[in-house]
Structure formats: C-alpha cells, structure tokens
Amino acid sequence: MGRLTTHVLDTAKGLPGSDIKVELYKVDGEQTTLINTVYTNHDGRTDAPILEGADYVSGKYQLVFHTSPYFKKQGIELLEPAFLDDVVIRFGIAEGEEHYHVPLLISPYSYSTYRGS
C-alpha cells in the first residue's frame, strides 16, 4: 500500500528539525485543500505517514513546512518577514502503490529537497 512520509534535517546544526508544523494539501488547479497537519518528532520525522490508505491517490500535492517558528525557538534572529517563513514543496504522486518520501534539508537561508526512499 502506498504512503507519503517526510523528515526534516537542520543542515546548519547537523540535527533533526523537531517540532516543525507540516501541512499537506491536495492541489486541484488553483484550489488547495488541507488534508493533514502533523508535527515532526525529536528525530525530525512524523510519527505516522502523512498520507496513506484510501486517501493515497495519484495527483498533485503540496507540503508546507512552517520553518520560521522552528528557527526562532533555536534562538536564531530572523529579519521580519523571515526569508524562509514557510517552505512550500509542490510535487506529484503518479502511482497509488508506491512509497513517496519527501525530505527537507533546511537552514535559515536555504533549503533542498529530493524524492527519497
């Protein structure tokens, strides 16, 4: 059965990004619909897949990582508005049976992502 997972790594500290709010949206044209809201755990991962089961269907999705509050909790002074207040990753799921893993590597002024395993 297919599932969607993620994790966050703070590349500035070399540590997992914990307690980061992550929202998943289904994208249909210009319309986005909130499907799930989770927080990363002490290992920078979510405790369960963000999407699985009957809700896991092919289509376009969007993950929103609320990174600015995380960096502020780390004592990092950010200009307002923060350069990376939220990191938005829009991606497609083509198959309903595959595992899609979308990691986020962050620092206060940059990010990177890829399709992981």
Rank of each mutant, 00 (worst) to 15 (best):
M1F: 01
G2D: 08
T5V: 12
T5F: 06
T6Q: 09
H7Q: 06
V8Q: 01
V8Y: 01
L9M: 06
D10C: 02
T11N: 08
T11K: 11
A12S: 05
A12W: 01
P16F: 00
G17F: 00
G17Y: 00
S18Q: 11
D19E: 13
D19Y: 08
K21V: 04
K21R: 09
V22A: 01
V22D: 02
L24P: 09
L24F: 05
L24A: 06
L24N: 05
K26T: 03
V27L: 05
V27T: 01
D28W: 01
G29I: 11
E30T: 10
Q31W: 12
Q31R: 15
T32E: 13
T32M: 15
T33Q: 11
L34Q: 14
L34H: 14
N36D: 12
T37P: 05
T37R: 14
V38P: 10
T40V: 03
N41F: 07
N41C: 09
D43P: 07
D43G: 10
G44V: 07
R45W: 10
R45V: 03
T46K: 15
T46R: 10
D47S: 13
A48N: 13
A48S: 14
P49K: 12
P49D: 14
I50V: 12
I50E: 08
I50N: 04
L51T: 08
A54L: 14
V57L: 15
V57Q: 15
G59I: 02
G59N: 10
Q62Y: 02
Q62V: 04
L63V: 00
V64W: 01
F65D: 06
F65R: 11
T67P: 13
S68E: 14
S68K: 13
P69C: 08
Y70G: 04
K72S: 06
K73S: 08
Q74F: 00
G75S: 01
I76R: 08
L79M: 11
L79Q: 13
L79V: 05
E80M: 09
A82Q: 02
A82P: 08
L84H: 01
L84E: 12
V88E: 07
V88A: 11
I89P: 09
R90Y: 01
G92H: 05
I93G: 15
A94S: 15
A94D: 15
E95V: 04
E95L: 09
Y100L: 09
H101Y: 07
V102N: 04
P103N: 00
L105C: 00
S107A: 05
S107M: 04
S107G: 03
S107Y: 00
P108S: 03
Y109F: 09
S110D: 09
S110P: 01
T113I: 02
T113C: 06
T113E: 03
Y114E: 11
R115D: 10
R115L: 10
S117A: 13
